[in-house]
């Protein structure tokens, strides 16, 4: 269709406003990125022994630095990378679900998908005694199966929403009790490892654990980002999105599979780090503002939450707490707040 002659010369208020908002979104995301980078660096430097940025950098470049090579290269680096990538995976997957289902409660850690991955991983390690790679596989299959079960139970004329969330919360409770049961039954089980499966922890970080997650993130995150625009349009409801040319069912399927797989890999590596998927999106939305995709900001916020919570848990208190305890303390009040708000608003958020 040709343009009509009623337009005015640029640059219009329209264009300026849109540019200004886009620029401010990018700025906010860049600040988040820098913060993540800073925390990542701090996680590598701080510990029982402090290493300066120069020493850390040399270790990253692969040079032999006495002491630092082991402490930073073998202990701290996998841990920091795990925090970075698991946080990003949880944040991106979380905001994807929240956006798609148009409800901040619809996060994979609230509706039982993380619990599914977690239960499978615990059963795999404690009962079946399989190795790490297989544990990831089990976690993914279980997470997808959990998502499918919730979807089927909640499906009614294609309408999803509050039903799905309530069913998901129920399933999550069931699966959490499976995790608790298995851990209690495993006789002389290491408490540290148990904590990893109850609330999430970075203590198990070795390259063998971290690499599958990094590979998964490299494949799955671009796949999700490719759907960002369609996902934005889905925020307006299925009808409007279809009218704007979105293939709703196909987009939903792609997004669910990719997000669930991300959650599963992150959970297999770091356990179900409490509330990160749930918190990252809303926090990112506050920081970045509406109007664009929240995937990247939420991923950065997820990394930020996990890295900060792990640093705090490791060094701020007399006892070392796993990361999930700290994020749990942050997330629980927000969950209560949302539930109260939902009740007042009559079930819609």
């Amino acid at each position: 269709m040709s343009a009509s002659p009623t337009t005015r010369p640029a640059p219009s208020a329209l264009r300026l406003g849109r540019r200004r908002r886009a620029a401010s979104r990018r700025r906010a995301a860049a600040v988040l990125g820098l913060l993540v980078l800073a925390l990542f660096a701090v996680s590598l430097m701080v510990g029982q022994t402090f290493y300066g940025p120069g020493e850390v950098w040399r270790v990253i470049l692969g040079q032999e630095v006495p002491g630092a090579s082991f402490t930073v290269g073998t202990l701290r680096l996998p841990r920091a990378v795990l925090g970075l990538v698991a946080g990003a995976a949880l944040g991106m997957a979380g905001v994807t679900f929240q956006t798609m289902l148009r409800n901040p409660l619809a996060s994979p850690d609230i509706i039982g998908i993380s619990a599914g991955a977690s239960a499978a991983a615990v059963v795999g390690i404690v009962v079946l005694r399989v190795d790490e790679a297989l544990v990831s596989g089990l976690a993914i299959v279980a997470a997808l199966a959990t998502a499918l079960v919730i979807y089927l139970l909640a499906y009614r004329d294609g309408v999803l929403g509050t039903r799905l969330i309530l069913i998901g919360i129920g399933i999550a409770a069931m699966l959490d009790s499976v995790v608790a049961y298995v851990i209690v039954r495993a006789a002389a089980w290491d408490l540290q490892v148990a904590m990893r499966w109850l609330t999430g922890s970075l203590n198990g970080a070795t390259w063998g654990v971290v690499l599958p997650l990094v590979l998964a993130a490299v494949v799955l995150m671009p796949a999700l980002l490719g759907q960002a625009r369609q996902l934005e349009l889905l925020q307006h409801g299925d009808d409007t999105a279809s009218a704007l040319g979105v293939r709703v069912e196909r987009t939903r399927l792609t997004v669910i599979v990719a997000a669930v797989a991300l959650i599963a890999f992150a959970t297999a590596a770091a356990g179900p780090i409490a509330f990160v998927a749930f918190l990252a999106g809303p926090i990112a939305a506050r920081i970045v503002g509406a109007g664009g995709s929240l995937m990247v900001p939420a991923a950065l916020t997820g990394s930020l939450l996990v890295l900060a919570a792990d640093l705090a848990g490791q060094h701020l208190f007399g006892t070392r707490y796993p990361v999930g305890v700290i994020t749990g303390v942050l997330g629980a009040p927000y969950l209560v707040y949302l539930l109260i708000r939902t009740n007042r608003a009559g079930g819609s958020l």
């Binding site: 849109r18 307006h236 939305a285």
Partner: peptide
């Protein structure tokens, strides 16, 4: 549609611009 949904906080210009998606 009868009751379209707007994401929280979206600006008018950004919403109208989404009409260009197809």
């Amino acid at each position: 549609p009868q009751s379209p949904i707007a994401p929280e906080g979206i600006a008018v210009a950004d919403l109208v611009a989404r009409g260009r998606s197809p």
